[in-house]
Structures are given as structure tokens and as C-alpha cells.
Design a protein around this nucleic acid. Sequence first.
DNA 1: GTTAGGG
DNA 2: CCCTAAC
Length: 709
Amino acid sequence: MSSKKRLHYGFSGYQSLVIPKAPRSVRRRHSHKNIDNDQICAFELLAAVASELLQESESSACSNAAVGKDELSDCRAVTKCEQLKEDKAVKSECLDQGSCVESAYIPEPAAQEQNLKYSLDKPNHIENNIFHKNTCTVFNSDFSKKDRSYTKLENCKEVNIDGKSYAEVEGRSSNLKDARDKKIQTGTQKQLGDDSKKTEDLTVANSCSVKGPIEKHVNNNAAINSDGSVQFPWYRAVRRPSFGKQKNNVKLGIRDDDENSYGFYRHSTNIRAFRQTSRVGYGRMRKMLTSRHWKAAPQLKDYERSCSNYGMKSFYRNRKRVYALERCRLEIPSKRRRFCHCSSIAAYDWQANCKSISNSPEKGIKRDIISPRGTGASASASGRNHQKKDPNVKFSIKSFKVPELIIEVSETETVGSLKRTVMEAVKTILGSGLRVGMVLQGTKVRDDDRTLQQAGISQNGNLNNLGFTLEPSSYPVSPSLRSKNPPTLSPDIADHELTRRPPSPILELELPSSSSDPSKIKMDKHDEDYQKLALSPTNPIDPTSDGAIPNSRTLVIVSPLNAEAPVVVSVGPKNSRSELSQRRTRRPFSAAEVEALVEAVEQLGTGRWRDVKIRAFEYADHRTYVDVKDKWKTLVHTASIAPQQRRGEQVPQELLDRVLAAHAYWSKQHRKHHAEAPKPVDAQVQNIDALENNNNSYTSTPSKEGSAI
DNA sequence: GTTAGGG
DNA sequence: CCCTAAC
């Protein structure tokens, strides 16, 4: 952890947001706890991995805990600590098949330093909006026989799903936790013991017997209501970050806001919960860890968002604008398709565990919801070990993930209002019609007429690579979203999330009122709110909202887990990639950022990217000096090509001019330096300055000076 | 740990 | 953005 950054954050009072970036070496290391025991194997390994991951994210969590008074925050921190201390505990947590939700979610360091200037200047802008992006899981109350106090969703401790308390996830509810642990242990042991029995055991443990519905749904390719749970994206309040200390010199524009929002949004995306993984899953996971394939996994996230263009739904409710984007993970653009293939596992909202069943042959496939594997749930290919002759395949569906929901509201919005908004979004998305998609080995199975056998789905087949997804039944497009500069919708989001991405189920809720007075919200409060939103599993559900989700589902915030994804929670750049080498989420530079960059380069010159980074993006942890350097590289390229050839966000020509000027200047400087002593430089500099007519004279900032930051 | 440059 | 050689 970089103490440096820590200091900065501490100073800023945003410790909670501190997300020190681990050194590359650290990020890359794939060390796991040693697991020699055959018995443990998968689980142990998983646990170890999870533990590692937890540790990785611990720092951030701790920071949050320390700063935040939020209960959830504390709880989380506690949990993590405990986990670290107790391997067993960790294992249980991670391995717990019962609840995907349980997996600890690590709060996102979403919030970042707030740009005071910005706020003051543009009180009514997006920056004031709270960006929420959390993943929620919807559970069918029908499933669990056990008591589930859905009514008391506001308190995480009171939430029970499948007999498991989500509160415990946070580590606070000891009693609940105990109960859960027992359950988990049982499940685990059984799994380890007899595979064939595993299914049943799990089923019992999870108490999710939805055979009928599932079967029906699966066969009919109908909407999925019966599955154990539906996963929603997290709604996270995101504070608009500042670019850096130089912000004072930077004109912040809407774009900036958007960018920031976007950036944070992305951050939140990175958060993932630890999920239990089945043995098979582990195997895959391990494989992934050691292979580059994992890189694809992260792409999923990216991809998910990227597919927004296609289907976007917008609807208005209570003055709130809600955008729904369809997420078609499978509909990956050619460019990204490869990723999907590789990371199909992670891509699917849920996968099924397939197990052959020794009976009821022609009936078709019998599916039971058995062992949910973590949130996203991936399938475990336990079927192989079983009766290979049996034509029946058993699927274990943990949960479905619904299209991503993005909510943007004003900070002045009440929590209750936000909850209602989320609820509405959920209702809308659930009620708008969903269909089930099936993915096998990263490929979408479109032919409904094929038999499972023909499709390669059998107990002998690659059941572990089988996944199901919830897809919007239609892809309405919302023009409003596309609008270039929606008042409340950040351009970045629109551009990046919606425009440039393939259809991805993104639901955006926009609250017009968001533009209300930002000043009312204090940073601390904001953080707190944020924390709660981010951490509270129950937040998504508005207690006040009468409605439960259709089909008596309960909405619980769950960290979004990809089926096989490396369950790593990432907060900040470091975690975003973690050990899994996931590709970082793309975070286009906003115009304001570009300006900051240009300014920094003008002053510091090229070749000192670390300094430039610090100067222009000191608090933007998601920007590394390499990023900055690369951006400059692209900027130079962009500036040198015809405007018509430029893509993406349009960088003001003025900035591009400055880029070229600075580039030319510094290139010359470097050449001269190499050639000899930089003497005639002054004249050159002056010329440039005059030409640019800007305050940032290259000479004004000695190279050494800049680095002093 | 940074840079520079190719991918 | 990633990766890596080179420093």
C-alpha cells in the first residue's frame, strides 16, 4: 500500500476512499496459500484464494471502517479482519454455497475527493448526483422454506435469505452468522464427501427447491422467475472525484462530471464479492488464474457495460428518468467476442451445475436449484463423475443476474427516495419481460430446437461451462439516452456506457431533482450515505415501498459476482485487477482530465510521467502514470490526425493544439538535451508561449520543480 | 519504481 | 489499456 497515497487521502478526509495501488509485482503475484491436503483441494484452495483477495482489499476496507461510522462499514471491516485471522472462517465465507449474497462485498471506494470548486460553481450539476451502482440480488421468497424476514430489509441483520442472514455477511450478526456457518460447513463437508450427494445436500442447505419452475422455465425458455435469485447490479452512490490538485486550474465541465461519475461508476463495478466456488469451479478458476484467459473475465464487466447501445429502455416514473439498457453479454461485438469466450464463465449471470440424474429420462431435463455457487454462480461439472450413461442432466442454478441498473440521483435525494427508485427500476426490469439465455462454453446457444445432447449438454459434457442468463426480451432503444448532453445524464456515461457499448442491460435511473442544492449535502454525510448504499445489503429495498418485487422476491444488495470470476473486490486500480490480471475497466479521459494532463505536461514536459500524473491526477487513483503517458501518446496522435478521423470523446481543438505545441516543444527539448546542452531553449520556449498564449509557460516550470509534488 | 515504446 | 525491455 502506498503510504503516500494514504497520506493524501487522510488529509483529504477520504480515507475510506483510499485505495492504494499495489505495485505491479504485487498485482501480478498469484501466490496462494499452500494447500497440500487432497481433501480440501478445491475448497481449500478457493478459500485460500479468497483469503488472498480479501487481504488485498483489506486495506481499503479497513480504511473505510476507520473513517466511516457506518455500521456496515465497520461490520465489513470486522469481517475482513476476522477472515484474515481465521482461515476457516474465510473458507466458510467463501465457500458458502448457500448464498451468493453472503459473499462479502467490499465496498467500493467510490467516493473520492470532492471538488469543492466544482460544487460551488456548479451546484446543480451532475456532480451532485449520487451515482449508485450496486448489485442486488433478488431472491424468491418462495424458495426458502425457512423464515425470511424480508419485511425488514432495511436492516441487513434482519434479512434472511435461504435461511442465511445477509447481515452476517457484514460480520455483525453473530448469531446469524453462526447459524450460517454451521450450515455452510455442513454443505461443504458434504460436497467434499460425496459428489453425488452434494446436490441434494446443497439443495437442502439452500432450501431452494424450485424444480418445477426451473424446469419449466428452462424448457420453455421463458422468463425466469423461479430461479433462486436474481442479481442486480449494485447501486452505488458515487461522488464525483476530482482530477487532482490542479483542479483549480482546470475548468471542470459537465464532461468532467460525467467522467468522474463514470469513473466511479466503474469503480463500483469492480467490486465483487467473494463467492463460493464449487470444486469444478475452483479448477477452472485455478486454470484461469494461471492463464491469460482471465483477462477476458474482466472484460466481461467491461463488456457488459459496453453493450448498452442496443437495448435501452427508458421510462419515466415519478419524475425520475429511468434508463434500462439491455445487457447482452453474449452479444459481444466482434472485437470483444474473444473475451467473452474466454471468460464466459464470469460473464454469465449464473450457471448451472449439472448433474446427471438417474431417472426420468425422456422427461427432459430435470433441474433443481441446488447449490448456488456464490452470487453469479457458475456451474460445476459435477455431472461428469456421475452416471455418465444417464441421459438426465441436473442443473444447479444459483441465481440470475438481471440487467445492470444504473441509478443516478441527486445527493439531496432521500435514501427512501432512492430506494424507491431502485425498487421501481427493479420492478420495471423484472416486469418488462425477460428471457433466458443459455451459454455453453462461452458461446450462446441460440438454437432452441436442439436437444441438450446435440448442444453438447450432458452429464458427460461440459456442464461446467454452461450458463444461463437473463436477457431482456426486447431491446427498445431510448433516444433520450443518446442525447448528447442530457441535463442530468453524464455524457460520459452516455457515451461510454451506452453509446459505445453493445447492448448491455443497464438501467439508468435519473432523478431530475438531482440538480437540487448540493450544498446541503456534506461530504461526510455523503460518504456515510454512500457507504450505506454500497454496503447495506438491504438498502436496495425500500422498506417503505410497499411493493416487493413481483413474485415475492426480495431485493438484496449483493456484490456482483461473476460466475467464475475471481471474486476479487476491487477498489481502486490495484484491486481492479488484482491477482487475476483482469483488464482494467476502460476509463476514457474526460475533457477536463485532458486539460489537466495537457497543463501538467506543458509544465513538466514529457518523460516525467510520474510527476505529471501526480500533478494532474493526484487523487485519481485509477489513473496511473502509465495511463497518463498513454493518454498523452494518444492525444498526440489524435491531434495529428484529421478531426474527422477522431473518435470517441471529442477533445477540444484548443487542447489538441496545446498538445501538439507541448509535444513539439518537449520533443525539441529532449532532442536538444540529447544533442547537447539546452541553451537556445529559452528562445524557443518563448515562442511557444507566445504562440499558445497561455499561462503555462514551459519555462515557467523547471523540470525539477514540477516533481516536487 | 519509472520510462519508453510496441501491441 | 497491457506488456516489457531497459534503466
